[in-house]
Write a protein that binds this DNA or RNA. Structure first.
Lengths: 222, 222
DNA sequence: TGTCGCGTCGTACCCGGGTACGACGGCCCG
DNA sequence: CGGGCCGTCGTACCCGGGTACGACGCGACA
């Protein structure tokens, strides 16, 4: 049984989705929300497997709602559904952790197939957008085995838990003193940790450490 | 009418694809190839809309064949089909210009839907792989215009061209001295610029400036 | 013609950050 | 039990970075 929360500001659109989903065995609609804030609230309550999320809504939009749902750490996956084939939407949505991005003109079976994939922990992107993403980013994919990213992974692996925490803090732009205060440590201790982190990841100073953190997604914008 | 070339070293596999495609109106199989070299030759002759390409084949493999087909500049699009869910294959395939990457265990309608999308100039990636690609690369997508970043955009707008260049350099982790050398400037000049940038964007130090730059996608993890 | 934004450079000062030590207690594991 | 990893803290030193001035030449534009 796959549980779904429908989020869209248009009642008629919600009805359409509900009709479709309820006609399919194994799909259950656990609720509807008309704006982002309500969506976030309902996800916290009912923990649906999949959230069908519209982008453009009055009040909190779908991107921000997605960000909060993902950040909450629950099991729910967000599948963005929009009428507008805009790259900015898609980039933002995928960036904040959406598991999918489909257009509302998709055929019903494509939508259902997408929902199933997302519920299973996979991800889907509309073919038109996939094309543009590939055109833009395919050339910078790693050629083959290992290379850069995996080597960096090893560098990250070499960090102890504490050091990783410190690196994240540095990535937030905090000074040593601020880190010391928040972690309740002596500033000298923080310096020690930072120094070890720099040595391990091969950074010259905390600026390069921040860049390293962003490259690995350890720190993320927004 | 969509024309398709089937490339696979296993005759039985080719037969399966042919049976499926010929059962669908609007699909036409223009030929079969058992290895990469033959595929490249046939594409040059018959210019199919879509090439269904296996990866593992004796002789020239599917990746190399794809590279050549794409490089030839024709209209044919390549859809990779493989039994093996290996990231290296996918990365390589997409990098050399494949329009899609699906697994052979896909349902027939998914495969057909993928072929249609590719024929239309779009692209498709298997959901399981899409998930991994997103997990790996989504965080480095450029941010777009959310309400948040638009406010920052104004801050960015307030920077002069030179200051923006300096900010990018800072975002790369360069020291003031290094920036001075690369831009052929005095270090004091760089300091002046950096100071003005910090004041304008509301950053305390260059670390926060780096974070700012990443948030706006002005600097991106390469 | 004046003036304003921009880019350039200099000096002087202070401070946060990075390094190089050394040290101590806790913990796990051989 | 001893050694190793981890996390903690301290002192001392040096340097890069940030700030606060002031100054100059240039092009645009009123």
């Amino acid at each position: 049984m796959t549980t779904v929360l429908i989020v869209d500001d248009q009642p008629l659109q919600r009805l359409g989705f509900r009709m479709l989903l309820e006609s399919v065995p194994g799909m259950e609609v656990t609720g509807e929300a008309a704006h982002g804030a309500d969506a976030v609230r309902q996800v916290a309550e009912s923990h649906p497997d999949v959230v069908l999320m519209d982008v453009r809504m009055p009040g909190m939009d779908g991107i921000e709602a997605t960000r909060r749902i993902v950040a909450s750490g629950g099991r729910s996956r967000v599948l963005i559904l929009t009428t507008f084939d805009l790259d900015e939407y898609a980039h933002s949505a995928l960036r904040v952790g959406a598991s999918g991005f489909l257009l509302k003109d998709a055929r019903p079976e494509e939508l259902l197939s997408g929902i199933r994939a997302v519920a299973a922990g996979d991800a889907v992107i509309a073919p038109a957008l996939t094309r543009r993403l590939l055109d833009t980013y395919a050339h910078r994919l790693p050629t083959a085995s290992t290379s850069e990213s995996r080597r960096r992974d090893r560098r990250l692996e070499s960090l102890t838990l504490r050091e990783r925490e410190i690196l994240v803090a540095v990535g937030r732009g905090w000074t040593n003193k601020e880190i010391a205060e928040r972690f309740v440590l002596a500033e000298s201790t923080v310096k020690t940790h930072v120094g070890r982190v720099l040595a391990k990841i091969g950074a010259r100073d905390r600026v390069q450490a921040v860049i390293f953190a962003y490259d690995l997604g350890l720190s993320t914008p927004a």
